[in-house]
């Protein structure tokens, strides 16, 4: 996997955000660099939620930030409603900011501890001069109620007086106050307890319905991603492995990596037994990624071709794409499909 290509980009009128061949590299000096994101493409249609899933270090957060142009991508294109963002500077770029907002993993550290909740949530409005005639106050109150906080009691308090789940609600209110088109959620529930995680996931679904959001949901938990997403993209070491509708991708994973990720999900059922076929070893260093398919060093199906030639994204089902030379066929039983295939490392 770990392939490139743009075959999975859709040609439709309702595409809000298109990311094409996005590359983000960080120089290390002496000509070496971290290949954080290497040619990632995907698109988001109006009102859709795309889940971006992968292990730590696969470049999923970097992708989210590069879409926001912080840091700017090294190469590639990011188009918001047809408008290219990578070339924009200064005031032109600033004017696109209200259209795209982000929420982060650690809700407590993303709130200024010295400011009151009402000021934190309303700051965007005053920056964009939308706070005339007390409109700001009612908008902030509306958002705080929408995320399940009482504006009267919560508005005057500071972040340390709230729990992690409540802080994430405040972050969500802040991100929605300017009525954005696209909301990028970077691991918004991974720091929270399961009970609170469920509250926040339900809240995001409510907010999406109420404010007509298009969401990019970045997470490492496959069950969480499936719950909230319409489509899912699996990333590995800076590349996209597999993209498809959530139902079809989870029911018929065709990339060996997707397969391994799904097998590793812990199931809250003692009868299920341990079905895990855990991947051996760790993700290779993004400084010196493997040649050809980047997953080949851990792939149970890898052949010689995988080292020589990078797989391109190609269709395997309706709106379902994979970047692999030897995909797992839907007919194969996922766990034993690997038996008898020569392993190369």
């Amino acid at each position: 996997m770990a392939g490139s290509g743009t075959a999975h980009l859709r040609d439709r009128d309702d595409i809000v955000l298109t990311v094409e061949d996005l590359v983000v590299e960080f120089p290390l000096g002496r000509g070496r660099k971290v290949h954080a994101v290497s040619g990632v493409s995907f698109d988001l249609a109006e009102g859709e939620t795309l889940g971006l899933v992968g292990e730590s270090g696969c470049g999923k957060s970097t992708t989210g930030k590069a879409i926001m142009q912080v840091p700017r991508p090294t190469r590639g294109s990011v188009r918001l409603r047809g408008r290219e963002l990578t070339g924009l500077h200064g005031d032109d770029l600033r004017k696109t900011r209200p259209q795209m907002q982000m929420i982060f993993q650690d809700p407590i550290s993303s709130l200024n501890p010295r400011r009151r909740v009402r000021d934190i949530v309303g700051e965007g409005l005053s920056i964009w001069n939308r706070d005339r005639d007390g409109a700001s106050r009612s908008r902030v109150d509306e958002l705080l109620s929408a995320v399940g906080l009482d504006p009267e009691t919560a508005g005057g308090r500071r972040a340390h007086e709230f729990s992690g789940g409540q802080c994430q609600r405040i972050c969500i209110a802040r991100s929605l106050v300017l009525d954005p088109d696209v909301l990028i959620c970077d691991e918004p529930v991974s720091a929270l307890d399961v009970s609170v995680q469920a509250q926040i996931l339900n809240l995001l679904e409510d907010m999406k319905a109420r404010y007509g959001l298009t969401m990019l949901f970045i997470a490492h938990d496959l069950a969480v991603v499936k719950n909230i997403s319409d489509r899912v993209a699996v990333m590995y070491l800076g590349k996209v492995c597999e993209v498809g509708p959530a139902e079809s991708l989870y029911a018929r994973p065709t990339h060996p990596y997707t397969n391994a990720l799904l097998a590793a999900v812990p199931r809250p059922d003692p009868e299920a037994g341990s079905t895990s076929v855990p991947l051996e070893g760790d993700v290779p260093s993004p400084v010196d990624p493997p040649s050809g398919c980047r997953f080949r060093t851990r792939c149970p199906r890898a052949q010689e071709r995988c080292a020589l030639e990078e797989p391109l994204v190609r269709p395997v089902g309706e709106d379902h794409f994979v970047a692999c030379h030897f995909p797992v066929h839907a007919a194969d039983a996922p766990a034993d499909a690997v038996a008898g295939v020569a392993t190369m490392s």
Binding site: V194, A198, E205, N227, D230, Y250, V265, P268
Partner: peptide, 18 residues
């Protein structure tokens, strides 16, 4: 148990949060 999202369930299943 009920608030854990499960891979077996369809997308957009309402979670029983506590």
């Amino acid at each position: 148990m009920r608030c854990i999202p499960r891979v077996e369930n369809p997308s957009h299943t309402r979670l029983d949060a506590i």
